[in-house]
Amino acid sequence: MRSLLPLTLVFLLGCQADAVTPIQEPVVAQKAPVQVAIVEPTTGELPGKSIYQLDGSWTTQDNKPLKLESFRGQPVVVAMFFGSCRTACPTIIADMKRIEKAASPEAHKNTKFVLITFDPKVDTPDALKELENKFKLDGQRWTFLHGDAGSIREVASVLNVQYREVSEGQFSHTNLITLLDPNGVVTTKIEGLKMPVEPLVAALNKIAGDS
């Protein structure tokens, strides 16, 4: 085993213990106002910040070719993951299911849930189909995307997901769940796992009500 950089390890543990402070400052910060999405028309030219301008070609778990722009017109909850990950990734999917469950009926009906793999080699469309079944996801609402390395790098960069293949088939990555408005513009996001989903759900319900 490689000798580990003590700086990154030893003190961090101490820090986390300290993080248990009597007063929870972040709770207040999380009362962030729900961003009132001013949704632009979902036809015509895409807004300048729309990630649907990315031109990458994708394949779904049903082996259908797809461009991101085809999601235009409804809110999308999107995250990146890889199928061989046994820790964080199932949790991310569980977090997204919590969002699905907490969404208003209107949002529940219209929202798409999208999972983009970091690992096109292992997570083939067929393998992604198996994941859909394994996690008992509604294929109408949930889309898994398989793409080439460049397209994955692009979409990660605009979602501010950092990732790195740290060994064959194993990826280190930031865990982000992002809400896109019907034009593919990032509205809000949840950073980390098992975090409260309420702020994102509130924003989603708002968008779904508007669209």
Binding site: L7, T8, L9, V10, F11, L12, G14, C15, Q16, D18, T21, P22, P26, A29, Q30, A32, N160, Q162, T174, E191
Partner: peptide, 28 residues
């Protein structure tokens, strides 16, 4: 929250130094 581009190593190192200020006990 604003931490869009967190850098784990930085976090770790940073946290290390940041720790020292933590209070040993809750304030009365």
């Amino acid at each position: 929250m604003k931490s869009l581009l967190s850098v784990p190593l930085l976090l770790a190192v940073v946290g290390s130094i940041g720790c020292q200020k933590a209070p040993p006990a809750p304030a009365p």
